[in-house]
Simulated scan of single mutants.
Amino acid sequence: MSYEYHREIPAVKTLSYLPLIQRLPHLKRQAADDYLYYSNGLISESSRSNVFIVKNKTVSTAHSGILPGIT
């Protein structure tokens, strides 16, 4: 399920799952497993994982606004 959200400090790994926890009842009502976060029309991550796209044998992920370790 998509949800517009952007980490306050996207370059820092934190253990703050508060946005997900607050929205868990809505997620469960929709029978969804997780949120796919986006901001300004761009997918950034999931609430508990990273997002990678494979197209034409090339793996891609966001270039900014994410943890540097996954680029």
Score class of each variant (00 low, 15 high):
63 H>Q: 14
20 L>S: 09
69 G>R: 12
54 V>Q: 07
44 S>D: 07
45 E>C: 03
29 R>C: 02
51 V>H: 00
44 S>Q: 09
1 M>R: 03
58 T>A: 08
1 M>H: 08
47 S>I: 01
23 R>A: 11
71 T>W: 15
31 A>E: 07
69 G>I: 10
47 S>D: 11
53 I>K: 10
15 L>A: 14
5 Y>K: 00
2 S>V: 14
65 G>C: 03
51 V>G: 00
56 N>V: 03
42 L>T: 04
64 S>T: 12
33 D>G: 08
3 Y>E: 06
43 I>G: 00
2 S>Q: 13
27 L>Y: 03
30 Q>G: 05
67 L>Y: 06
5 Y>A: 02
49 S>Y: 03
45 E>L: 06
30 Q>T: 05
45 E>T: 02
8 E>A: 08
70 I>Y: 09
11 A>F: 13
42 L>R: 15
50 N>L: 08
39 S>D: 13
69 G>A: 13
8 E>S: 07
10 P>I: 02
64 S>F: 10
23 R>W: 01
36 L>M: 12
62 A>F: 01
7 R>L: 07
52 F>Q: 01
4 E>S: 05
42 L>M: 15
7 R>F: 04
60 S>I: 12
20 L>D: 05
10 P>F: 01
37 Y>T: 01
36 L>S: 03
16 S>L: 07
70 I>R: 12
64 S>N: 11
34 D>Y: 04
9 I>R: 15
31 A>P: 00
35 Y>L: 14
66 I>D: 02
51 V>C: 02
38 Y>Q: 07
64 S>D: 14
32 A>M: 04
24 L>W: 10
9 I>A: 07
66 I>W: 05
54 V>R: 09
69 G>M: 10
18 L>D: 13
12 V>W: 06
19 P>N: 01
61 T>R: 11
31 A>F: 10
54 V>F: 05
63 H>V: 13
66 I>M: 06
37 Y>I: 04
41 G>D: 03
11 A>D: 15
63 H>M: 15
44 S>E: 14
65 G>V: 03
62 A>C: 06
65 G>P: 00
58 T>P: 01
59 V>P: 00
25 P>V: 02
5 Y>Q: 04
48 R>F: 09
61 T>A: 06
18 L>Y: 05
53 I>G: 01
64 S>P: 00
28 K>H: 11
46 S>D: 08
50 N>P: 03
52 F>L: 07
45 E>F: 02
4 E>M: 03
57 K>N: 14
25 P>G: 01
54 V>N: 05
62 A>R: 07
70 I>C: 06
27 L>F: 04
9 I>S: 11
53 I>Q: 06
24 L>R: 05
32 A>T: 01
64 S>H: 13
6 H>L: 12
11 A>I: 08
49 S>I: 07
17 Y>L: 14
60 S>M: 14
48 R>E: 03
31 A>C: 12
70 I>F: 15
71 T>C: 15
